[in-house]
Design a binder for these strands. Structure first.
Length: 964
RNA sequence: GCCGACGUGGCGGAACGGUAGACGCAUGGGGCUUAAAACCCCUUGGAGGAGUAAUCCUCCGUGCAGGUUCGACUCCUGCCGUCGGCACCA
């Protein structure tokens, strides 16, 4: 019997070498077994792994090893999300080339990951910064472009002044850059965008089918896509008050039922009509300018003050030509949502009420909750939203429910025809992007002698100025472009010079039902060096031209300087000078690179065939996709996961994938948190510099170097600023990988935060040692490997087997449901029972053949259960039990379910719902038998206190309840 | 403001509507040891009670107030609190 301690530092690398030599984690694409694809979110190569990685990859590894043991062909790859800002920051700070820095980091982290013993197929390793990866991304960009899923447009963008780059809306958090934390400015720039909004509805609908995703993530995505159903309503403007050529304002509302409660029209500062009005009035211009500057600025959102200015324009109510509403330019309506204009109904919207109160615009309630008088009506009343409210003060809507009124207003306004929609004739688009072209409106004053609108077609002049990105109206006025660049002035053909013409096609109703999404298209242009080059050449004659496929990849130049902020690619002396692929005249290469979220939107597809010379290999992709279990942090619930869902759809549309949804199962794990240690001077000490000791029931933290007593602060996410990080390398060298893995899986449910404590780690380490001793003890008592099964088992042997199989059943289920903390508890129980059995057997001084066989079986089950979680220790113990083969290659034990069924069962007995006793009966005992046994129990008699039981409820296999 | 999750011992947490507190950590006590570490055993929700003792009994306990049920940590309604997400979204 061996009694030395398990030496993880020696054993772990030894087993890792064995696994590597035998290539047991290498996965083939032509394996006949069922496939299982488990993936953890790949890391950014920052230089060192952190505890979050350890937790994430441990969970994935448990699943991978379990699934392998269950007979699946498991794909469990690893790669590097290797483009991004930190490499450039390092380049600027340390004069290292981003490539050098990145690949050095990858090498360091790879060796760290290997020392954790993860069962990864390293032969499929990929790095997104490698041309062999990003060339395929460039190819797909071109394919998407061909398919109309990419556009180049001038856009109002979020500009990060520190990183000197554009950010997507998703990357702006509370008005600040997600990485730099700098306050974001609004700029207009040419941007490459992915048309994710094409899939708004589909991305939303498909969420319902993702039943193995956390509800939380689905809700977050639903909100982000932000679908709302409403009505677009056109308000005519009183010509006496409106600027020249502005005839109408279109608003978007989800509450058309409140139309008779309208008191004003509110415009975004950059709305066309607001701009037209501002162009003539200095006061308005000043207000608009100021509001626009603050469009997303922090202080406005925080102060919430609703400001506005009366334009003097009056809008005519769609149901009453004699009723006019004042038109305000405001700071609380944004151009980016709806039509950039709303009608304000103060009685039923808090914002509108604030605004109306401030400017004295009045207030008429139009929805009345049931049984409540008009006077006591408040806007927060729930009846306002649902069927229980009744319309009042609303003419023909009076008495209807809210729902009925919405429908009534929509159907009436839909029938009211006001003009004609105009469509661009095909082929006249300025940049050839869309087939439909923009729509426009005929002004209502174009009528014939009988008051009817004249028949189509009408011709209208329009003109696009690509420098200012504005539209010139036929009248000579300019309007700024925004999403509503479909407004044009209508005139007679002969009034215009020979210019492109618009054609009148369809009558336009006053009201139009509209489904509105909050989701924006995904701007991917970044003014950075360390990213995937966008494969485009700008030619003066041919505009943006795709780089011919034979010229892919467009590789990043390596001779690059980082002495100034901004885009180094743009400053490179030669790289951007190329010839136009069409006319061969000098042209400019696109110097923007792609958002790194593009890189991570398809790496899981590339893993299925990382050597393919097309982005994906159809056969491999079809075999492996979708990912069966994806595991990562909840911080990617929106960005990465939504982009990936879009990208996979776009890849399907362009023939690179056959699935729409990339991730069948998703699991979001919690963070690793640690308490903080604050010094007297307000700085923090890291856990490695601190000794924590228990004094009675209190704990106190001492700084090792000088004995200073520290304040134990709140438990927070491990971060550099709070210095509460624990380096995985330290844990590894002190305790070993298995201890770290085990601790990560114990205690906390995997979706919640886990508190890293020294005591907890030591507890895990003790268990590692205990298991090792137990295995050696069992090895001394158990029958040899492969010995025959005894004909029958005696009582102690049976008890051992029952316990082992019970643990097997529970741990299997817990791993499948990713409830690792429960699985851990089950393994503890099994180890405890086996430990007790070993002690008993020693005391008895003799081990019968059947017990020896049971020990063998239970020991093997125990180690097989431990292997996914602590693979090195399991191998060591497996070998100690006498095995020559690897436990990692052993299949999952077969469960003998009949062992879990008892002949007699012990039922708890309740009297009036309170537990009073236990009763042991035969498993299939009849009710009367059980009832008699229960009533005979002394504690039951006592609890009944002479009363007759009214009823006895027997729940089979569960419980007995006596009701008195 | 809107949406969502959560609330159980000293702590992390268990508990298909069926014995609340599995398992771990931490306490306290004991054993082994010259001693320490390691290891092993026992103890621990609260209050009260019976017994020489092993042990046993009673009551109260899952954020608060109700409800459904033979029976509620679990389901329903309304509050309170904590955390997370979104946010002038019309």
């Amino acid at each position: 019997m061996k009694s030395e301690r398990y030496n993880a530092r020696e054993a772990e690398p030894r087993w890792q070498r064995v696994w590597e030599q035998r290539e047991i984690f290498k996965t083939r694409n032509d394996d006949p077994r069922p496939k299982y694809y488990v993936l953890e979110m790949f890391p950014y190569p920052s230089g060192r792994i952190h505890m979050g990685h350890v937790r994430n990859y441990t969970m994935g590894d448990v699943v991978a090893r379990y699934m392998r043991a269950k007979g699946n062909n498991v794909l469990h790859p690893m790669g590097w999300d290797a483009f991004g800002m930190p490499a450039e920051n390092a380049a600027m700070a340390n004069k290292v080339h981003p490539k050098t820095w990145t690949y050095e980091n990858i090498a360091a982290m790879k060796s760290q990951l290997k020392s954790m013993g993860f069962s990864l197929d390293w032969s499929r390793e990929l790095a997104t910064c490698d041309p062999s990866y990003y060339r395929h991304q460039q190819k797909m960009f071109l394919d998407f472009w061909k398919a109309g899923l990419v556009e180049h447009e001038k856009r109002k963008v979020n500009w990060d002044p520190v990183d000197q780059t554009v950010l997507a809306n998703e990357q702006v958090i509370d008005g600040r850059g997600w990485r730099s934390g700098a306050e974001i400015e609004q700029r207009v720039m040419a941007q490459w965008v992915f048309k994710i909004t094409r899939y708004s509805q589909e991305l939303l609908d498909a969420l319902d089918k993702l039943d193995r995703w956390p509800e939380k993530v689905r809700v977050m995505q639903r909100n982000w896509i932000g679908r709302s159903e409403g009505l677009k309503i056109k308000f005519r403007l009183d010509p006496a008050t409106a600027p020249l050529q502005e005839k109408e304002i279109e608003v978007y509302t989800t509450r058309p039922d409140t139309l008779f409660g309208a008191k004003f029209i509110a415009l975004a500062p950059d709305h066309v009509v607001a701009l037209a009005a501002s162009s003539t009035t200095a006061k308005l211009a000043a207000f608009s300018a100021q509001s626009m500057r603050h469009a997303t600025a922090q202080e406005i959102i925080e102060t919430q003050e609703k400001l506005g200015i009366d334009t003097g324009i009056r809008a005519i109510h769609p149901f009453d030509p004699s009723w006019t509403l004042p038109v305000y330019i405001t700071n609380f309506v944004v151009m980016e949502y709806g039509t950039g204009a709303i009608f304000g109904c103060p009685a039923h919207d808090q914002r509108d009420l604030d605004f109306a109160n401030k400017y004295g615009l009045g207030n008429t309630p139009v929805v009345c909750p049931p049984g409540v008088g008009l006077k006591s009506f408040v806007i927060t009343d729930k009846a306002y939203e649902d069927e229980t409210g009744t319309m009042i003060n609303s003419r023909f809507l009076d008495g209807m429910t809210v729902t009925q009124a919405k429908e009534k207003v929509a159907s009436r306004l839909e029938k009211e025809i006001w003009g004609y929609e105009l469509r661009l004739p095909l082929g006249t688009e300025e940049r050839g992007a869309t087939a439909e072209g923009p729509a426009a409106l005929v002004t209502p004053d174009l009528k014939d002698a009988h008051g009817n609108p004249p028949p189509p077609p009408f011709d209208v002049r329009w003109e696009f100025d690509s420098n200012s990105y504005q539209w010139r109206l036929g009248s000579g006025h300019w309007i700024a472009n925004h999403r509503y660049f479909d407004r044009f002035v209508i005139g007679r053909k002969e009034q215009f010079e020979d210019r492109k013409m618009l054609q009148l096609t369809q009558p336009v109703p006053v009201g139009q039902r509209q489904i509105q999404f909050r989701l924006r298209d995904w701007g991917i242009s970044r003014q950075r060096y360390w990213g995937c080059p966008i494969p485009v050449i700008h030619c003066d004659r041919h505009d943006a031209v795709p780089v011919p496929e034979k010229d892919l990849p467009v590789e990043l130049p390596e001779d690059i300087e980082f002495d100034r902020p901004g885009n180094p690619l743009d400053r490179h002396p030669t790289w951007k000078n190329v010839r136009c692929p069409i006319c061969n005249k000098p042209a400019r290469r696109e110097t923007d690179t792609m958002d790194t979220f593009v890189d991570s939107s398809w790496y899981f597809l590339r893993f299925t065939a990382p050597e393919a010379n097309t982005p994906t290999d159809p056969k491999a992709e079809k075999y492996w996709m979708p990912v069966d279990q994806y595991i990562g942090g909840v911080e990617h619930a929106i960005l990465h996961l939504l982009y990936s869902r879009f990208f996979t759809r776009a890849m399907k549309a362009t023939g690179h994938a056959h699935v729409e949804e990339p991730f069948k199962g998703l699991f979001t794990q919690g963070m690793v948190v640690h308490e903080t240690y604050e010094k007297k001077d307000g700085t923090f000490a890291t856990p490695a510099e601190v000794r924590v000791e228990a004094v009675g029931d209190k704990r106190r933290a001492i700084l090792l170097e000088n004995g200073e007593q520290l304040t134990i602060g709140p438990i927070e996410k491990m971060s550099k600023s709070k210095r509460n990080t624990v380096d995985p390398d330290d844990i590894l060298s002190t305790y070993g990988a298995d201890t770290a893995r085990w601790f990560m899986l114990s205690d906390s449910p995997p979706d919640r935060d886990v508190i890293w404590t020294e005591e907890g780690v030591q507890g895990s380490y003790r268990f590692v040692q205990r298991l090792y001793r137990l295995a050696n003890d069992l090895a001394g008592l158990a029958a040899p490997v492969g010995s025959p099964r005894p004909a029958s088992y005696g009582e102690p042997a049976l008890a051992v087997r029952k316990c082992a199989h019970a643990a097997l059943a529970r741990v299997s289920e817990d791993i499948e449901r990713l409830r690792f903390n429960r699985g851990v508890a089950q393994i503890y129980e099994l180890a405890n029972v086996l430990g007790g059995a070993v002690v008993d057997a020693r005391a008895a001084k003799a081990v019968s053949a059947d017990l020896a066989a049971a020990f063998r079986e239970a020991g093997e089950i125990l180690m097989r259960l431990v292997e996914p979680m602590m693979p090195h220790l399991a191998e060591e113990c497996w070998a100690a039990l006498g095995h020559k083969k690897l436990v990692a290659e052993a299949s999952w034990p077969a469960l003998e379910r009949e062992l879990l069924v008892e002949d007699t069962i012990t039922l708890p007995v309740q009297v009036n719902g309170k537990k009073r006793a236990d009763v042991t009966v035969a498993r299939d005992a009849a009710y009367p038998e059980i009832e008699a046994a229960v009533l005979a129990l002394e504690p039951v008699q006592r609890a009944l206190d002479g009363k007759q039981p009214k009823r006895i409820i027997v729940v089979p296999q569960r419980i007995v309840n006596v009701v008195a």
